[in-house]
Design a protein around this nucleic acid. Structure first.
Lengths: 195, 195
DNA sequence: CGCTCTTTGTGGACAGTGTCTACACGGGGT
DNA sequence: ACCCCGTGTAGACACTGTCCACAAAGAGCG
């Protein structure tokens, strides 16, 4: 319930560590409290719910991803198309490097949280404005930017999700450099499949 | 452990009903057994594990989706591009109509099962061969079909996943006909974003 | 027939979980 | 000095996954 708190932060941090070490199922309310050196019911002073904790973790993950995307975009020159591609590649690599975080960010309970959705919306807005810039430079087709962003995000997100599901390694493509593969996929999304 | 069994089928069926009515979290081992009118430990005669049950329903879901894709493809004419698009639209609509099933099919535990992965591979193979056909008709670019299928599937799967996450309704696009929207997205994936 | 052995189902038990409630402490405002 | 209120604790309850020991029921075989 509280807004400004220190132990709340410690609990989220403990949850992130547990998530990193043992995956999403390890973030139980009691396990997190134990990991933070607190009693089993302490978290209820800072979170409504188990789901509430998960949403806090998801929100933090979204903000981290957003930061990385912002940084990748701003450090890749002036060409709007390159900037846009940098966002996509960063997104894919984030999912690849932090599978647990990514899973929580787009889990079912996270989907029901307004805070998480607004954090996701920031990422979407970033992609959307990058697309608008690329449109102004004449690289992208002249269409509703929102819808283009939806399509682009679908491609990037789907690739990330399928990779987490093990598809890429099942296809025998996992020996490739993840960054290079991500680049190829984003380029194909950009160019389309049409002959 | 057993291979041919009737109650095993009943348990899976009970799990599917529970999944439909109350979502993925409702498929507990005990809850499923109760729903099937059995004792709490009966499922252990037919499944190794809770995860094993989940994988069985995931596998069944994959096979259902595969059947629907096959049917959609075969009942949409001779044009290879239309056949390919039919698969994508069917995939998106399946996720939209059966969100619980879809979530289980691509959950973390399902990703660890060989049976599920081979069921997913059937879907991928379907898309892959549809792409090869479209290439032969000159509709698709001449590139490794496997990689094209990966990109196409990424787009379709990502859209489905994001829609489940509530993104589409958050964008205010949920008043549109889902089939029509799915068509637009697949067309954009086909055409690409390039000007 | 009677005897085993395997399969299937049952209930009991244990640890672990989410959640609620009752209690203890400690600092800030009146 | 007093009393709240925010924070932390332990206890309890129902529920879960999992394992174990047991019962019934049938198959194969002397």
């Amino acid at each position: 319930m509280s807004t400004n708190d220190d132990t709340r932060e410690a609990l989220i941090e403990a949850a992130m560590e547990l998530l990193l070490e043992r995956g999403p199922d390890a973030i139980g309310l009691r396990a997190v409290a134990r990991h933070a050196g607190l009693s089993h019911s302490a978290p209820y002073r800072h979170f409504d719910n188990h789901d509430d904790l998960l949403c806090a973790v998801a929100e933090r993950g979204c903000r981290q991803l957003w930061e990385r995307c912002v940084h990748a975009q701003s450090s890749s020159g002036e060409d709007a198309r390159a900037r846009f591609q940098a966002i996509g590649v960063t997104y894919m690599c984030f999912a690849w490097e932090h599978p647990g975080r990514f899973r929580v960010m787009f889990s079912e309970v996270a989907a029901g949280s307004d805070a998480v959705r607004s954090a996701q919306a920031s990422i979407f807005a970033l992609a959307s404005s990058a697309i608008a810039a690329a449109q102004r430079q004449g690289h992208f087709i002249q269409d509703e930017p929102q819808e283009l962003a939806l399509v682009a995000w679908s491609g990037v997100h789907g690739y990330a999700q399928l990779r987490l599901g093990g598809l890429v390694s099942w296809l025998g493509m996992d020996h490739e450099d993840p960054v290079e593969l991500a680049r190829r996929v984003t380029r194909k999304l950009f160019l389309g499949l049409r002959a």
